[in-house]
Design a binder for these strands. Structure first.
Lengths: 352, 352
DNA sequence: TTGTACGCGTTATCAT
DNA sequence: ATGATAACGCGTACAA
């Protein structure tokens, strides 16, 4: 049987359970000799403190909740990997906090339910919310109860946040195309709307605005015919959009697909099928630095969002906030980086 | 303040906390009138039972642990998505169990540590272990303590398991190539060894044996020069292997890459760069049905492992085992399916 | 070092 | 049939 409790250990080691508790956690309050004796018994009887009981007593859960719109959310996997690597390199052990995963299924109702349950039932010490934004009420409730809430790709004055500078990312890509003599740029972005009761991400809008601002600064009239929206982020839709683009924009010489590399690649494959040369006829830049960009021919230029950095910062923010090392709400902004590959290589002036 | 406990609710609703507890969980032991009164108070004071206290009292944790070699493990994300969809469609709510994610960092030591902690500290009600195999000792310990252990892509008489019929998957692909007149088939598989103290997956070996058996059945001599191993599963290595293949196997007319679609695609891209026509000169089939296979040109044939099914079965097995609905250890075998796409389309006899 | 109150529900037993 | 009482579950942390 494995009903060994701290009381048993205390009895066998002839000390109080308080001492056992301290010895297990290697407290300096217990002298080495006693510690050794206790730990020998602990080892012999294979005693592990009951996780739940321990957490009830300490008032902490040892859990960081990670809430995403879907498990397939583009950000989720890279962020988890970033945290995983950080823990392995820095903490060198199982990891101080357990990661609990939640999907809202893209439903606002479920998002609210999950966030409230985590808060009030005291399920997690901190919550990292990825690409979706909790409602104001809920943010306030987290604030009131001093439960750390870390928003990734959203901002709020009453929560910590890590955001990516989308404006900068969009500018870098457009500047690069423009400076390499691409003057007829088509812009693709995620849809700004969604099905009823489904969550809308704010990211497409940010990128679209960045595009419009860039045009303004360059004295380029914003032409809605050069803006395309993507709903599914999926390949078949990309092929259709590609067809539309070449039909409706005869002179297009560059496509910046801020809807991600998978969509960008779909566009690219379709254009190649149609006999269009990439990058000679049309340059393409995607977004995300998804590995697919390196795996296709020609290799796809892209905007790297530095999710490795985002993940580590989110984790650190959560941990520091739990340990009350942070006084006020922190807002960290990560600068993305343009990755130049074959799909957008230089078009020389001489061609004209 | 949110220090509302079940005692407060009991006091306010003028009943005992036992009744509150029952009312919250909609027990038939409490009459409707009392229930209504209590639930009104619960609602008014926004009371949520303390998760930890609740679990300490009930002796269950409400957690299913998912242990993978790395968060980037090919199986992990599809399995999580499968579970997510199942919960959304069937349970229609937050999900009865919380999913806790663990990475062993591919280290055997860490794997052992994690599995022991989960078991003895009573962190989870059931554990799903993905593509790695717990040591015999640990499997026995789980058995002794009656903690459900579900192995994915591993088998053991003392644990539940979901495996994919690798032999069948390999046969399907090879048969298809062979029957379409590809007689000079190169086989690529994951490395059978790994760095010291790193975990070795048993999958490559299974697939390699399946290949050898297939050769035997077809009266084909196994030619080690036609077998290539992949270490990194990554694109650069794939390109190198592609170069080696065409140098060392002049007459190769098909490649079956059982090391996954990403690697297969790397091979394919390199061959295309070299001017080789796919599938006319060389047919290619990958493994995994990774979305990249649909996103490249030509689209990649592949073996779909039905991970959607695997994920659902693993979850159901965990839940049923927790609820003691299963008497003996179950072993579920999933049949993969060959997905025929452009990269391996038919080579007619007439060409010769 | 230790005694012990405490955290907060759950559930078996008892009472009406 | 309902509801109350009280005994758990098992560590943690503070006062002594």
């Amino acid at each position: 049987m494995n009903k060994i409790t701290i009381n048993d250990i205390a009895r066998i080691a002839k000390c109080s359970k308080a001492t056992v508790s301290l010895a297990i956690r290697n407290s300096p309050k217990v002298k080495q000799e006693t510690k050794d004796r206790i730990l020998k018994v602990v080892k012999k009887y294979n005693f592990y403190p009951n996780y739940i009981a321990s957490k009830l007593a300490s008032g902490k859960t040892g859990v960081i909740a990670v809430v995403a719109s879907r498990f397939s959310n583009t950000f989720l996997s890279p962020l988890l990997t970033a945290i995983e690597n950080y823990i392995f390199n820095k903490e060198k052990k199982i990891g101080e906090y357990k990661l609990q995963l939640y999907s809202t299924f893209n439903k606002i109702e479920i998002k609210n339910e999950i966030l409230r349950e985590i808060l009030y039932s005291k399920v997690a010490d901190a919550v990292v919310v990825i690409t979706i934004k909790p409602e104001q009420d809920i943010i306030s409730e987290y604030k009131k109860l001093k439960r750390p809430l870390i928003l990734v790709e959203n901002k709020d004055p009453n929560a910590h946040s890590i955001t990516i500078d989308n404006e900068y990312g969009v500018e870098c890509a457009l500047d690069y195309l423009y400076n390499n003599n691409r003057k007829n740029i088509v812009f693709i972005v995620g849809s700004l709307t969604s099905a009823i009761d489904e969550e809308v991400s704010g990211i497409p809008e940010e990128r679209l605005n960045a595009y419009k601002n860039w045009c303004k600064n360059k004295n380029i009239t914003v032409d809605n015919k050069k803006i395309y929206y993507c709903r599914s982020y999926w390949i078949n839709e990309a092929r259709e959009v590609a067809d539309k683009i070449i039909k409706e924009n005869k002179y297009v010489d560059a496509i910046f697909c801020a809807a991600g590399d998978i969509f960008a690649n779909g566009i690219m494959q379709r254009l190649i099928e149609k006999g269009i040369k990439i990058p000679d006829d049309i340059a393409i830049i995607g977004y995300d630095n998804h590995f697919i960009g390196e795996a296709v021919t020609p290799q796809l230029s892209t905007v790297d969002q530095k999710l490795e950095e985002v993940g580590v910062q989110a984790y650190l923010l959560a941990v520091d906030a739990i340990n009350e090392k942070i006084k006020s709400y922190k807002s960290i902004i990560i600068k993305p980086e343009l990755i130049k590959r074959q799909s957008s290589s230089i078009k020389s002036q001489q061609q004209f």
